[in-house]
Nucleic acid binder design. Structure first.
Lengths: 116, 116
DNA sequence: TTATGAACAGACTGTTCATCG
DNA sequence: CGATGAACAGTCTGTTCATAA
């Protein structure tokens, strides 16, 4: 494990939550997160979104289905869903990430206290 | 700039503060930080301490002097001090790092709020 | 343009190795 | 062992390129 939480873990966490909320495919999640983080000056890179989703499939948490959007020109999209034991695995993963987030917050808080 | 604050910047910040407090040389600072962070489960790696000090010298913030300890066997140590404009440069650097720390804290706080 | 993916290059960093008294 | 430094290897990640409808 690294010093600070990795961007990958951070985004995987959001991907899980978005799939829980039935927000479906990569590009949409990317745009949603971009909008969501705009105020904080953070723009999640496209590649990290897809890499995170691929990771979660490799982890056995999500699986993919192909769909065609009905609106414009039947653009193909990849939707993500929990596997049979995906929710349980996701719960464990989120627990780990939560611990990491807490650890990082403690480090940052200490750094501010010690140096300012 | 990366997603989270780099360990390097984090440690450089501490190095500056320790030099402000006239705590002198690398190994000593390493041991002090190790002790200091033990409770948080973080052990700053030796290499990062020296790399950070070398960075600060390259940045023109610190300069080095050689000394021999009088206690045991005249072990040579490298002491660090602010250059003429080092304190001013350090002030600017610390300001940048503070902004980065704040940004990271905001991201972590949002992640906890959004996903838990 | 929307949507997905991969390749590439560079930064960051943990471990190990080297040196010296 | 105390003290400093560098090398190496692997991971992480931002940018760019590719492809397709």
């Amino acid at each position: 494990m690294g010093f600070m939480i990795a961007q990958r873990a951070f985004i995987k966490l959001y991907m899980i939550t978005l799939v829980e909320k039935h927000r479906g495919y990569g590009y949409q999640m990317l745009e949603e997160l971009k909008q969501d983080f705009k105020a904080l000056g953070y723009e999640p890179p496209q590649s990290e979104i897809y890499r995170s989703l691929h990771d979660l499939v490799e982890d056995g948490i999500l699986y993919r289905t192909r769909h065609r959007k009905l609106d414009v020109d039947y653009q193909e999209v990849i939707m993500y869903h929990f596997t049979d034991d995906g929710m349980e695995k996701a719960r464990l993963y989120k627990k780990l990430v939560k611990e990491d987030l807490d650890r990082c917050q403690a480090l940052l808080h200490k750094a501010v206290k010690d140096n300012f």
